[in-house]
Structures are given as structure tokens and as C-alpha cells.
């Protein structure tokens, strides 16, 4: 499992990216993260809700009470237009970051 220190700065982007594919709620999102990474990264419950709070404050997502499923009323999250714009910036930033890290971490000459 990946250490959460390395990935800390990207939690918000993960969630935005998932929400960009459609509204969802807490457990579903953490399940998707786990599945998509084959269990290499598991987002901690408190990390996820810190991110929701931050994103809501910035206006990137909004929350609304969803319908009752399996006897529980869930809070759903939805990405806003600003959130989509922010996600785009972050995606571009990631391409550069990945290249930088690739170059420096790999340790092999090109």
C-alpha cells in the first residue's frame, strides 16, 4: 500500500476526477479509489471528508441529501463548473509533475 504522505496533495483531485464522472457519495467514492488502484491506495475516511470540506468551501463541489438506499440517507456530492475548471488545471499540472518526477526518480539515463 502506498504511503499517504506522497499522495496527500492529490486527494482533492482524485475526488474531483471521480465526481466529474457523476454524482456520488462517500463509500462509493472510496470503493472506486480502491478498485481503480487495485487496492494500492486506500483513502482514509477522515482524509476523504477533509477533502470534501475543503472542496465545498472552495465551491468546487456541492453536497445534497440523496435518496435513501439500504435504509440510509446518504450525502451526495456533485462537481460544480468551478470544480471542473480546477480539475482541468490540476490535470495539466499532473502531466508536468509526472514528467518531472519520472526524470528525477527513475535514475536511468535517457
Amino acid at each position: 500500500m502506498i504511503s499517504s504522505d506522497v499522495i496527500r496533495g492529490y486527494n482533492d483531485t482524485f475526488l474531483l476526477s471521480l465526481l466529474n464522472q457523476g454524482d456520488s457519495y462517500g463509500y462509493e467514492l472510496s470503493r472506486q479509489i480502491k478498485e481503480k488502484t487495485d487496492g494500492d491506495y486506500i483513502i482514509k475516511e477522515t482524509t476523504m471528508y477533509s477533502a470534501f470540506t475543503r472542496l465545498s468551501k472552495k465551491g468546487y463541489i456541492i453536497s445534497y441529501p440523496g435518496t435513501v438506499t439500504q435504509g440510509k440517507k446518504r450525502t451526495y456530492y456533485s462537481i460544480t463548473l468551478e470544480g471542473k475548471m480546477h480539475l482541468k488545471e490540476k490535470q495539466e499540472e499532473w502531466h508536468i509533475t509526472r514528467e518531472v518526477v519520472d526524470h528525477l526518480v527513475k535514475g536511468e539515463d535517457k
Binding site: Y25, G26, Y27, S30, E45, Y49, Q70, K72, K73, R74
Partner: peptide
Amino acid sequence: KQLKVDILANLEDKYLA
């Protein structure tokens, strides 16, 4: 309060899964 309810629901889902 809502946070507590949401987190509890998530944990229960996770547990059942």
C-alpha cells in the same frame, strides 16, 4: 452531526462489503 452520520454509514457499508 451530519458528518458523523455520513461517516458511520460509510464504515457500515465498508464493513458489510
